[in-house]
Amino acid sequence: MRLLGKGIPFVSGVDTPAIGSNAKCMKERKLALIAKGRLKELLAEKGLRVVLGGAVDKTPKHRPLVNIYRANGEEIGKKLLREGFALTWSPKQRNIWCD
Rank of each mutant, 00 (worst) to 15 (best):
D15A: 06
S12N: 06
E45Q: 11
G37T: 07
L43P: 01
M1N: 13
S21H: 09
R94V: 12
T88I: 15
A71Y: 11
L4Y: 06
K58N: 15
G20V: 00
L87Q: 14
A86G: 08
L33D: 12
L4P: 04
L33K: 12
L3P: 06
K36Q: 15
A23G: 01
W97G: 07
K24S: 02
D99N: 14
S21I: 07
D15G: 01
A86F: 02
I8Y: 12
M1W: 13
D57C: 03
K58W: 09
P9A: 02
Q93C: 01
L42M: 06
R49I: 13
L87I: 10
R70S: 12
R94G: 11
R2D: 13
I19R: 08
E45S: 08
L48R: 03
Q93E: 12
C98L: 00
C98H: 05
K24C: 00
C98A: 00
A86I: 05
L87V: 10
I96R: 14
R63L: 10
Q93K: 14
G73N: 11
V66W: 04
G13H: 02
H62M: 12
M26L: 15
L4R: 04
K58D: 15
A86S: 05
L48E: 01
W97Y: 06
A23F: 01
S90D: 11
L48C: 03
G53D: 06
I96E: 15
I8R: 14
T88W: 15
A44Y: 04
G47H: 09
K24R: 10
P91S: 04
D57P: 01
P64G: 06
R82M: 14
E45L: 10
T88Y: 14
K36M: 13
I19Y: 10
G77C: 04
T88H: 14
L80F: 03
W89N: 07
P60T: 08
G53L: 04
R82V: 13
I19M: 10
I76K: 01
G73C: 10
A71N: 13
Q93W: 08
R49S: 10
A32M: 04
L31M: 13
L81W: 09
I8K: 15
I76Y: 04
I96D: 14
K36T: 15
L80I: 02
L31F: 05
L4T: 00
V56E: 03
K46L: 09
A32Y: 00
A32P: 00
E45I: 03
S21M: 11
K79F: 05
L81P: 03
F85S: 00
R70E: 11
I19G: 04
G20N: 07
K92E: 14
A86P: 03
L43F: 07
A18H: 02
G77I: 03
L81G: 03
P91D: 00
L4G: 07
D15V: 02
T59C: 01
R82K: 15
L65Y: 00
K46F: 03
R94C: 08
A44L: 08
G77M: 01
N67S: 15
P60E: 08
A55P: 00
A44Q: 14
K58Y: 09
P91F: 12
N72Y: 10
A44S: 15
P17V: 05
F85W: 09
G37I: 03
